[in-house]
C-alpha cells in the first residue's frame, strides 16, 4: 500500500451554502498500480489529485502518505520555465536537494539519454513541440526518482500521435515499478491503466 484516503471531505462555503468539492472519498492505492481518475468537468478530479499531491489541503478525513519528495508532477500545460534550457529545466528539482554537481550532471545525462532528447538539451521550451515539452516535463518529474507520479491530463494539449507516445512511456514507467495516478478524460488513455476511479460531483461513483 502506497497511500490511503479515508472519509475525506473538502468543501467551500459560498453564500451560506456548503459546496462539497470532495465528498467522502475513500480509497487505497497499492504500489505498482496505474490508476486513472475520470469524470466530467467539475467532478473534482484535479482537486483530488492536488490533495493527493499535497498541493492543496482538505477539511475532514484522513490521508496517509510518506512525503512530498517522493512524488513527481506532470501537468497538462507542462509548466516549464521559459528562461531555462531543457537541460536546466530537468536539473531544477535537483538544485533544491543535496546533490553534488557531478552527480547532478550524471542524473540529467541519464534522463536526456533515456528520453532521446540529448540533442535538444540546449534548446528552450519555446523551441520544442508540445510532445517534446511534455517529455521534458516527465523527465523533470522523474529526475528525483519518485515513488509516485501524479499526472493532470498529461496529453490534454497533444495530438493523438504524441498522446500515444506519452501514454506508452507511462506504461513503460509503470512496468518498471513507478506508481502512477493520472486524471484524464480519454477512455483510450484510461485503458493504459490498471484501475479507473470515476468521480461525479466530488463522490466516487465507481472504483
Amino acid at each position: 500500500m502506497i497511500l490511503q484516503i479515508k472519509n475525506l471531505f473538502k468543501w467551500e462555503n459560498s453564500g451560506g451554502n456548503r459546496v462539497f468539492l470532495l465528498n467522502d472519498i475513500d480509497f487505497t492505492v497499492n504500489e505498482g498500480e496505474f490508476i486513472s481518475i475520470m469524470g466530467p468537468s467539475g467532478s473534482g478530479k484535479t482537486t483530488l489529485l492536488n490533495v493527493i499531491g499535497m498541493l492543496d489541503g482538505f477539511n475532514e478525513g484522513e490521508y496517509t502518505f510518506f512525503h512530498k519528495e517522493y512524488i513527481g508532477f506532470v501537468f497538462q500545460s507542462y509548466h516549464l520555465i521559459d528562461e531555462l534550457t531543457v537541460y536546466e529545466n530537468i536539473e531544477t528539482p535537483l538544485l533544491y536537494k543535496k546533490h553534488r554537481s557531478s552527480e547532478r550532471k550524471a542524473l540529467v545525462a541519464d534522463m536526456l539519454d533515456r528520453f532521446n532528447i540529448v540533442g535538444k538539451k540546449d534548446l528552450f521550451p519555446a523551441q520544442l513541440s508540445g510532445g517534446q515539452q511534455q517529455l521534458v516535463g516527465i523527465a523533470r518529474a522523474l529526475i528525483t526518482s519518485p515513488k509516485l507520479i501524479l499526472a493532470d491530463e498529461p496529453t490534454g494539449n497533444l495530438n493523438s500521435k504524441q498522446s500515444d507516445e506519452i501514454m506508452t512511456l507511462f506504461k513503460q514507467l509503470n512496468d518498471e515499478g513507478v506508481t502512477i495516478i493520472q486524471v484524464t478524460h480519454s477512455e483510450k488513455n484510461a485503458a493504459y491503466g490498471s484501475r479507473i476511479i470515476n468521480l461525479l460531483d466530488g463522490r466516487i461513483v465507481s472504483n
Binding site: L55, E69, F73, H79, L80, I81, D82, E83, T92, P93, L95, Y96, K97, R140, T144
Partner: peptide
C-alpha cells in the same frame, strides 16, 4: 510568478 511556483513545487523554499 509562474517560474517561482514551478521552483517551489520542484522543492525550493521561500528563502531560496
Amino acid at each position: 510568478l509562474k517560474n517561482y511556483a514551478i521552483r517551489l513545487f520542484s522543492g525550493a523554499t521561500y528563502t531560496q
